[in-house]
Design a protein around this nucleic acid. Sequence first.
DNA 1: TCTGGGGTCCTAGGACCC
DNA 2: TCTGGGGTCCTAGGACCC
Length: 415
Amino acid sequence: MDTAATILHADLDAFYASVEQLLDPSLRGKPIAVGGGVVLAASYEAKAFGVHGGMTGRRARELCPQLTFVGGQFKHYQRLGDAAIKVVGDFTPLVERISIDEAFADVAGTEHLFGPPVEIARAIRRRVRTELGLPISLGVARTKHLAKIASQVAKPDGLVFVDPATELDFLHDLPVELMWGVGPITRARLADNDIRTIGQLAATSESALIRLLGPAAGDKLSALAWNRDPRQIKTHRRARSAGAQSALGRKPAVEGVFRPTLRHLSDRVATRLRAKSRSGRTVTARVRFSDLRSVTRAVTLSAPISTTTILAEIAEDLVRGVLADHPDETTISLLGISVSHLDTFTGMQLDLPLGLADEARRPGTSRGAARWVADCAMDTIRDRFGWEAIGYGSVVLGLARSVPDGFRELAEKDL
DNA sequence: TCTGGGGTCCTAGGACCC
DNA sequence: TCTGGGGTCCTAGGACCC
């Protein structure tokens, strides 16, 4: 077994909020929230009042009346997130980026160049602070799981090194919810059985955990509590699905609402797929009703697709099916489309048979190949003149979007 | 009474095949 | 003819993560 602590976990602190405070010095030291209807990120000053991400703006204002909401300069988020990850990459090629503001790295093998892992972590923190002006926390440990927990413990703006000789001492007094994979439901289920710390989890038999949480989760948590974390750094992982969704507020469940919305969502998803020469066989549509219950319908095709109009028509059929099964639901609050079973394709040859098969299956749709060519032409025009330069009829008029496209792009994973 | 958006993985049941 | 086991694929729903 590898006994050296060479794994780093780097996590920018309250990232969006920190960027806003960096760009506008008058916001520094103040409780601020990025977002509007929903808090996307809160500064540490706001967190002190109990404000956190995912909370409604209204609830946040109740907790902290002097809270300042800021709009979100998402282009700067992307730029500064990339720059921070690049600093990590200056110390090792083995970087696994988790999100815009978070990455793992393995510095085994680069120590002779840059010194021991803790020195590298200090250097990363110093450079991100001086070159970018942002606070970042680092965890250094022998495994990814330990490094991730260490960076959480280090926050805000800190560094924690977990000595391989005392890992279990470090781990076992911590609450279970610091573990990767323990959310509110699992935490509550464990608490019902008087399991609140990772040590108590480790003292619970694996078979008991499996009974409590199922084979996969029980097995995984047992392994993590006993500090057996097999995960390796993965520098590049291909996406397994691509999707888009849109909250609608409270809209009537009628064609006039869901058709243009699904066109827009299909446009976003299919354009992304084509840009990376990918396509998928399974289409899933999600409908959320006004009471926030949500229902999904999926269909798996015999050939993968990436054509905007075909995706839109399939999604429309699925949504019609959902609404037909729920005749009492008259309003919807969200629509979503996801494409999975992703494949890599090299041109339109693979898409063509589907167009034909689809025509056979669905009278009234036609010209699968022509649609594909039209999509490609549109992609080219958008590359040159911008997304808004062209679009499908009802889509190009634009919909009221609760979240700007810039924000959406930040969350998109590389396909 | 204005609850976001983009993902991953797991489970359970049914269909189908050997 | 009946029974059983194992494997794979698909769908729907959940839990979790950032």
